[in-house]
Nucleic acid binder design. Structure first.
Lengths: 194, 194
DNA sequence: GCGAGTCTTGACCATCCGGTCAAGTTGGCG
DNA sequence: CGCCAACTTGACCGGATGGTCAAGACTCGC
């Protein structure tokens, strides 16, 4: 859905996304009806369909926007750091910080990943993130500072650590980001063995 | 729902769970209706409600049963291995192997984790699994062979690696379990750094 | 103050869904 | 064989849901 929007319109659209995000995170996507969203906002149902052609589209937009935002944050954090290992560390810290500030999105993304309707969008997002990580890993491997294993698998392993620590300590609990980041980084770099 | 079941009844019940599992994995839990399940099986709707009091109950049963099965597999694999690091390795391999044989369950569990209705069951399952891992980690720490960090966080990190590698290489792709297991184990034990 | 495009309303619709139930069938056991 | 519990059928129900739309309100440039 593409419409000419005034400032008022853009604000309304954002309200709808924010409100929907909150409800999706609380109750889940399917159990949250469009009526729930507009009621919560105190507006008529037509408002929703003025800005989005379907509930599905709203979620897809939300996923695209949040991913764009997360990626921007990661790139800002990494800047032009030349050390590939440092870059990985900065990326991990940026992800944890972002998810901490956007807890709602974590569960929404987790759900979307399990739904074939949204999986394609999520897959693309993830492929991009993995490709970023792979680049740093390859640099590290060339420099002889990172184990010479399949960089793609290593990238997924790192993302797995970040996702699970985020879920447990930043979404379910409310731990200090730096404490979690420290464990995540040292686990990824040095593993368990002493 | 508790009923006296003959062999025929137990078979039917299992058919329903298997069929529902397949459909849940394919289309998702919410989009799969009870009618879909019984139609696929070619039986009347009443059959479903003879064995389960609700669609919700079926999923809860499925989650409980699958978790029980996975845990049994892990314990069998670990046996009475005395080396805690070996035990962790055997646990990782057992999990990967089990999920490989039960791909459908992976996405169902992933969905259930995002739905507050089922999260409690899942949380209990996960707590048990984490507690198992923590035990091995603590043994390793006492022996001075594992980094002296918060064992709970380390356990979550390991589970994160296993979950993400499972998803990417055993569910989305169809890689060789041993190859994935090797990477998972070496990543968890030694990390990235050379 | 008027006209046009942006925005809002909320009743309405077709459809579907989880769940019920009265009635009928099956099969094992005494 | 006859009985009874286990099992099956499928029409039916109340309610909710995603989505439509005709009508009206707002606002901004002219």
């Amino acid at each position: 859905m593409r419409r000419k929007l005034t400032q008022r319109g853009r604000d309304r659209r954002e309200q709808l996304i924010d409100c929907a995000a909150r409800l999706f995170a609380e109750r889940g996507y399917h159990p949250t009806s469009v009526s729930d969203v507009v009621e919560e906002l105190g507006v008529g149902k037509g408002v929703f369909y003025w800005y989005f052609s379907s509930k599905e589209e709203l979620l897809a937009e939300l996923l695209k926007a949040s991913n764009h935002d997360l990626r921007k944050r990661q790139q800002q954090a990494i800047g032009d750091e030349p050390d590939p290992i440092k870059r990985i560390e900065l990326g991990i810290r940026a992800s944890l910080t972002w998810f901490r500030e956007h807890r709602d999105y974590f569960s929404i993304i987790a759900f979307a990943a399990t739904d074939e309707t949204f999986a394609p969008v999520l897959r693309r997002n993830r492929d991009i993130a993995i490709a970023d990580t792979i680049r740093h890993l390859k640099d590290g491997i060339v420099e002889g500072r990172i184990t010479d294993a399949d960089p793609e698998m290593l990238a997924h392993a790192i993302h797995g650590v970040v996702a699970e620590l985020t879920r447990q300590y930043l979404v379910e609990q409310d731990e200090d980001v730096d404490r979690i980041a420290a464990v995540a980084v040292s686990f990824c770099l040095d593993g368990l063995a002493r």
